[in-house]
């Protein structure tokens, strides 16, 4: 683990893989829950976890540099099921890129167990990992100015679902009616870092 100082009261902890970032994130959440870590924000990302609003960043940096990375935590949480219709406008492009029929894209995607690696881009937008590296896809050469809310999309190693209409460059493979973000709901976000996710094809799709 490499620990970088960020401003006055934050640390960026860098690891070498997505799995390590998720394990480190779970460990830091555990420490905060038990009271041995005080941090305003714990923000996981692709290869890092950001700790912001720390009381004594220097002391924690020394401790984390010497610490051993925990092994991946037990995946005890329930699985969030997202009903999906594999009807996205880029399904054909993804099938071509993967070298499989469109129906096979749907089958592969729907039989994969995903995990929310981190959130960002918009409230409730999760970057889901789980597809093997051979199914990575590039972003679209020209981003769309408006991607509809509920679009299920792929980019790089990630799957994501657009919580609301926004510009976007991801490959759209399907649609869901589930509400990803509702600030009047508790919790507002359906997907938080660490959440396990499965996509369930709707009957008839």
């Amino acid at each position: 683990m490499k620990v970088l100082s960020v401003g006055e009261d934050a640390l960026l902890v860098e690891v070498s893989s997505d799995d390590e970032a998720q394990a480190l994130h779970a460990e830091l959440l555990r420490r905060r829950a038990e009271g041995s870590l005080s941090a305003r924000e714990i923000v996981p990302a692709a290869r890092t976890v950001l700790l912001d609003g720390l009381d004594s960043p220097a002391g924690l940096a020394a401790e984390l540099t010497a610490a051993k990375l925990p092994s991946a935590p037990q995946r005890a949480r329930a699985v969030v099921e997202i009903p999906v219709r594999y009807d996205g406008p880029d399904l054909g492009d993804v099938a071509t890129h993967w070298g499989v029929p469109k129906s096979e894209v749907a089958r592969i995607h729907a039989t994969t167990e995903f995990r929310v690696a981190f959130c960002g881009f918009a409230p409730g937008f999760g970057y889901l990992t789980g597809l093997p590296p051979r199914w990575d896809v590039p972003r679209r050469a020209t981003p769309r100015t408006a991607v509809p809310a509920g679009s299920v999309a792929l980019a790089g190693p990630y799957t994501g679902v657009y919580p609301r209409s926004s510009p976007g460059g991801w490959q759209l493979i399907g649609t869901t009616d589930i509400v990803l973000w509702d600030h009047a709901r508790v919790p507002a976000a359906l997907l938080a870092p660490g959440t396990r996710v499965r996509f369930v094809p709707e009957a008839g799709s």
């Binding site: 401003g7 924000e41 923000v43 692709a46 890092t48 881009f121």
Partner: peptide, 30 residues
């Protein structure tokens, strides 16, 4: 970089090389 968490006051440098100081409505990752 792979996306990483951003803090208030971060000076991010986009491809045009001109620094941007993140204020209150800044994105959480970048």
């Amino acid at each position: 970089l792979p996306s990483e968490g951003m803090v208030l006051g971060a000076v991010q440098v986009p491809p045009d090389g001109r620094p941007v100081v993140f204020l209150a409505d800044h994105p959480t990752t970048g």
